[in-house]
Nucleic acid binder design. Structure first.
Lengths: 228, 228
DNA sequence: AGAGTTTTCGACTGAGAGGCTAAAACCTGT
DNA sequence: ACAGGTTTTAGCCTCTCAGTCGAAAACTCT
């Protein structure tokens, strides 16, 4: 085992998208040892002069069109000296989100996998992926992070299915609409969508009001006293 | 400017404690260039064979008794290549909490500073410190993280003052008690504390039920449907 | 004993999430 | 065109829980 005095540095990303009604992660099959052939998270070494954000975007660009990654945030840093069998390597994991609908061209070695049925992943990538899912689920409660999973325009039913897939449990369309409207997270476009075959009332079309992450402030408990 | 092909790696910690009714951070005065004499966060280089957690604990041990740091968690990773004027350096910031009451021996160059009136800090340490405070404030809402700021036993009034200092606004003792009891975060010891001079009803003594971080689960909105 | 202090308890209020039902609006097949 | 089926939408109700207020409790000091 090579044990240099300086760790190598890699960036990784858990890239999630709702595909076919399921939360899926972008994985690629390793082309070299160790873990040759095993599925793993996209990423790679840090280069001189770049930030970690730039690094992970550069590595992701080799797999997907990075313009389609609508949100990217730091997830956690892994530093166990034995996490890589041959090299002292520190990994900075990011969480990336791709909106439903876009279907990026992928290289041969890359594909989507449902997070609920992951294959065996290389290194500690399995835990990292689950940590990414948990981060997403938590933030769905108190931020507008779903903007990065949803298409530009959508009906409440589509959004309900999206939330249900990400959260892993049913969501009520009625309640979802009320909560998100009350918080000012989504707004109506004024348009309606024609019903599919089989009929049904035409659904109103909505959009997210913001294209970046915002935290619902009124969310905290133990608030400051009302200033009367 | 030295621009090696591999970044150096340091760990830093924002160590917070409520002292004299104010949220304060542990800082030390740099003894070498750059930023000679400027206040900065404790930390230092990563050594071969250790994790980042071990590294920051080792560096903290040079400043305080690390057994007194009741909670330590990853905060963020700073990777701007220009954040250090001479070296390519990646910094992993941690958030550490010390309970009220303990008063560790400190070296000559080290002291506590109120976060609301920080001096000019070296590098990007000012922003990191404020990020630590925001993390603490957020987590006070939906976790039991206050266990790491509070002494083993306390009255509700003492806990109210502690929350008020950390949050930066008044907190109602009545409400605080109800919320924390209902969530099962604190429990009564059955004892009461003798009133000080001036009188007053003796206060009931409480303790936190858990000594590690726990998340209030019922906190999420868009919960799973009730299973009837 | 009375005045002053601090803690504690109970009741009230209001906001907001979750649930249910009925109505609205559309399609398809006869 | 009408009946029956489907999906969306709106209204109403309930329940939980945070926040507020006031009064009672329990103690000290003079």
């Amino acid at each position: 085992m090579r044990q240099s005095t300086n760790p190598a540095h890699v960036s990784l990303a858990v890239v999630l998208q709702i595909r076919s009604g399921a939360l899926q992660a972008l994985l690629w099959q390793r082309g070299r040892e160790p873990f040759l052939g095993a599925w793993s998270l996209p990423g790679g070494y840090l280069e001189a002069g770049e930030t970690l954000e730039q690094s992970i975007q550069r590595h992701l660009a080799a797999k997907v069109d990075v313009r389609e990654v609508a949100h990217l945030e730091q997830l956690e840093t892994l530093s166990d000296p034995n996490r890589h069998p041959r090299e002292w390597q520190i990994a900075n994991a990011y969480l990336g989100l791709v909106p439903t609908g876009v279907d990026p061209e992928l290289p041969e070695d890359t594909d989507w996998h449902p997070v609920s049925r992951l294959p065996e992943l290389a290194f500690d990538h399995g835990e990292i992926t689950l940590a990414g899912r948990e981060r997403l689920r938590a933030k769905l409660s108190y931020t507008n992070i779903a903007f990065a999973l949803a298409p530009p325009e959508f009906t409440i039913s589509e959004l309900r299915d999206l939330y249900a897939a990400a959260l892993g449990h049913d969501v009520s369309a009625t309640n979802l609409q009320r909560v998100l409207l009350r918080r000012g997270v989504i707004e109506s476009t004024g348009e309606r969508r024609a019903p599919g075959r089989g009929g049904g009332r035409p659904a109103a079309v909505f959009r997210f009001r913001s294209g970046w992450l915002e935290v619902t402030d009124e969310f905290a408990v133990l608030r400051p006293p009302s200033t009367k």
